[in-house]
């Protein structure tokens, strides 16, 4: 009889377990909560697989190991200094205890539209490195997530790393999460913005992503185009906010109404008004 939980020390030890059909567990903060009260099925913990960890610059990307915890990423200078929009999200994800356990890989594969790292990673145009015993492939994050809890992860595959093209150092990076309380809150709306301006404050490039306003995180191409060439003044941001409202499909749930989400989604950018 096989053990109901294991901690393989390497990917090579993991592959045969995946073939047995075990479920992957990283921090367990999503998986074990979802499984509460159910008959336990076998899991394989990734936490001892060194190759799934580490933060480094690689081929022009900042590579974030999928099993890095939110807390360890937050402590990393590359994340804090080069990716403040992501750091802003990590800072308000769950609680310190959740951040000590939950991983960025788990946040992505959970594929919740409220996953806090997702809006920043969408705005950063992140890619994913997926590995299996047959090899590796690289996919854009936005194409990988299909809907709530649904991803393009194939059987036998593991998310190994998140590859983030670092924005220009001068780019403005902004994150805001709206929850019903200040810690341990699932986002009702979140906004991630990466905005590059010229020396005069005119927007050269804007990347805007909204969380919790549809089945997946939403990039807002119309709004991004509208912002290009303008300054971050109140008038421009009001117009861009209105465009953002038209690019999302929020729903009513326990935490907030669709109307509220839509309203706030268009308001949040105003925080940047100069």
């Amino acid at each position: 009889m096989s053990r109901n939980a294991r901690c393989p020390g390497s990917l090579d030890e993991l592959w045969p377990l995946l073939e047995e059909g075990v479920t992957i567990m990283a921090g367990g903060t999503d998986l074990l909560v979802r499984r509460r009260g159910q008959v336990p099925a076998p899991v394989a913990c990734l936490e001892r697989i060194e190759s799934l960890r580490g933060v480094r610059v690689h081929e022009g990307f900042i590579s974030l190991g999928a099993c890095e915890t939110h807390a360890s990423l937050l402590r990393h200078a590359l994340v804090r200094e080069r990716l403040p929009v992501l750091a802003g999200a990590l800072q308000v994800l769950g609680s310190p205890l959740i951040r000590n356990m939950g991983t960025i890989g788990g946040n992505i594969v959970s594929a919740s539209p409220a996953g806090d790292t997702l809006a920043p990673l969408y705005a950063l145009d992140a890619q994913l490195e997926l590995v299996s015993k047959w090899g590796a492939r690289r996919v854009p994050l936005a194409g990988f997530i299909h809907g709530p809890g649904r991803t393009g992860l194939k059987p036998g595959e593991v998310l190994a790393a998140v590859l983030v093209p670092p924005p220009e150092p001068s780019a403005l990076q902004h994150f805001e999460k709206v929850g019903r309380r200040k810690a341990l809150a699932i986002a009702v709306v979140s906004l991630a913005a990466v905005i590059l301006t010229d020396g005069e404050g005119v927007v050269l490039d804007a990347r805007l992503a909204l969380g919790s306003v549809g089945p997946t995180v939403a990039r807002c191409p119309k709004a991004e185009a509208l912002l290009a060439g303008r300054r971050l003044d109140r008038e421009a941001l009001l117009a861009v906010g209105e465009a953002m409202r038209s690019e999302i499909a929020p729903i009513d749930d326990l935490r907030a109404s669709a109307a509220y989400r839509r309203e706030v989604a268009g308001n949040l950018l105003l925080r940047l008004a100069s």
């Binding site: 053990r3 939980a5 294991r6 901690c7 913990c45 310190p96 205890l97 000590n100």
Partner: peptide, 22 residues
């Protein structure tokens, strides 16, 4: 709730969301 917190290698973790093997 955090009532189950313990230190594992110096980091505070939730023992309700951990498995013995870890």
């Amino acid at each position: 709730c955090g009532a189950c917190a313990i230190l594992v290698d110096g980091a505070a973790k939730l023992s309700c969301l951990m498995l013995a093997v870890q």
